[in-house]
C-alpha cells in the first residue's frame, strides 16, 4: 500500500477509482473532502462514491453534497428557461454552454456538477437584440466601470456580465468561445450552425464542439483555476461521446493542441479511454499536472510559483504584449492587484 498523497491527486484518484477510497483514514478523508470542495467537485465526487461504503460522517457530507447539487441543477435549468422566455419574442436561439448544457441534456458531466452562472452562445449579429431582450426582462449590468465595459465589448467573447435583479443570478452571453484578442479564433459560425436542439426550444453545441469548448476553456483561456473540474468535464464527455471526429473538428477551430492536451491529461489523471496517441504525456504536460493538483490537505492553493507562471501565461495567450501592458497599467492605476 503506497503512501496516500494529499494534493489534487487524492481527489483525482477517488474520482477515477471510487473503490480506492476504502483504504482512506480520517486524515485522508478530511483532505479529500476539503480538496473536493475547493475544486468544486464535491457533488461529482458524492455521486461517484454513491453506493461505496464510506465512514458515517462522510455518508452525511456526501448526501448533503448530492442534495445541494440537485438544487443547483434545478436552479440552473430554471435560469435557462427564463432566458428562453426572454428571448422568445425576439426569436433568438438559446444555445446552452458548460454546466447548464450538461444538466439540460442529462450528460454524465452534469451529474453532481456545481453550476454558477448561466453561459449561453448567441450569433454575433444578434448580440444587441439579446442584450435588449435581457435588459427588458429584468437583467441588469454588474460592472459600472466604463473601462471594463468598453474592454468587454471591444475585445471579449461575451457581453459584460448581467445579473437578474430578482433572482440574483448571473448570465454570460457569448458570441464565440474565446476572447477576440486570443491567437486562436474558433469558428463561431460553425459552432452555431451545428448546434443541436434537445426539445423545449433549448440548444447545445454538437458533441465534438462541446469537447472543443471544454478544452478551449481549460487551456486557451484563464490560469487553470478550477482546472480539475473542467478536466473532469472533459473526461466525462470523452467517456460518453468518444473521440471520433474530434481531431478534425478541433483543427477546424484551431484547437487541435488544446484538445490533445486535454485528452492526454484526462487520461493521465482520470484514466479516460483515449486513442493511443493521447496515452502518453508530452512537452509541458507534467507542468500542467503540477498546476492542476496544486492543493494541500486543507484544500488551500499551493505551488505559488507554478500558479504564478500560469497566471502570467493566461494573460500572455489572451492578448498581444503591448495591449497587455496597456491593460495591466490601466488596471493597476484602478487599484487592481492579482490574487
Amino acid at each position: 500500500m503506497g503512501r496516500i498523497v494529499s494534493d489534487g491527486l487524492l481527489l483525482a484518484g477517488a474520482l477515477r477509482d471510487p473503490m480506492s477510497t476504502t483504504i482512506l483514514d480520517s486524515k485522508d478523508w478530511n483532505a479529500l473532502l476539503a480538496i473536493a470542495r475547493a475544486e468544486q467537485l464535491i457533488g461529482s465526487l458524492a455521486w461517484r462514491l454513491h453506493g461505496v461504503e464510506v465512514p458515517v460522517p462522510v455518508t452525511r457530507i456526501l448526501e448533503d453534497a448530492r442534495r445541494s447539487a440537485e438544487q443547483c441543477r434545478v436552479a440552473a435549468l430554471w435560469e435557462a428557461e427564463m432566458t428562453r422566455r426572454a428571448f422568445g419574442a425576439a426569436d433568438i436561439p438559446v444555445i446552452l454552454l458548460k454546466g447548464t448544457a450538461f444538466v439540460a441534456a442529462g450528460l454524465a458531466a452534469g451529474v453532481g456538477r456545481s453550476i454558477g452562472d448561466l453561459d449561453i452562445l448567441v450569433p454575433h449579429e444578434r448580440i444587441d437584440a439579446a442584450e435588449a431582450a435581457l435588459l427588458a426582462a429584468g437583467w441588469e449590468w454588474v460592472k459600472s466601470d466604463a473601462y471594463d465595459d468598453v474592454y468587454y465589448r471591444r475585445w471579449m467573447h461575451e457581453l459584460p456580465p448581467l445579473i437578474h435583479r430578482e433572482r440574483d443570478r448571473m448570465i454570460d452571453v457569448h458570441h464565440t468561445i474565446l476572447p477576440l484578442t486570443a491567437r486562436v479564433r474558433p469558428n463561431a459560425a460553425a459552432l452555431i450552425a451545428d448546434s443541436v436542439e434537445f426539445g423545449s426550444g433549448l440548444r447545445m453545441l454538437s458533441p465534438q464542439d462541446v469537447m472543443c469548448h471544454a478544452a478551449a476553456h481549460l487551456f486557451a483561456d484563464g490560469d487553470l483555476a478550477g482546472g480539475l473540474r473542467n478536466l473532469w468535464d472533459m473526461h466525462c464527455l470523452l467517456d460518453e461521446f468518444g473521440s471520433e471526429g474530434l481531431v478534425t473538428r478541433a483543427d477546424l477551430h484551431g484547437l487541435g493542441s488544446a484538445v490533445a492536451r486535454a485528452a492526454r491529461l484526462s487520461h493521465a489523471l482520470y484514466g479516460t479511454q483515449v486513442p493511443e496517441g493521447w496515452q502518453r504525456l508530452r512537452g509541458a504536460d507534467p507542468l500542467y499536472l503540477r498546476r492542476l493538483t496544486a492543493r494541500d490537505g486543507w484544500g488551500r492553493p499551493t505551488r505559488r510559483l507554478t500558479r504564478f507562471g500560469f497566471y502570467v501565461r493566461s494573460h500572455a495567450i489572451r492578448m498581444p504584449p503591448t495591449m497587455l501592458l496597456r491593460h495591466l497599467w490601466t488596471k493597476w492605476r484602478k487599484g487592481h492587484v492579482p490574487r
Partner: peptide
C-alpha cells in the same frame, strides 16, 4: 467530530 472526520474546515 464523529470518526475524526469534520463537516467543515476552518483556516
Amino acid at each position: 467530530p464523529d470518526d475524526q472526520i469534520a463537516d467543515f474546515n476552518v483556516h
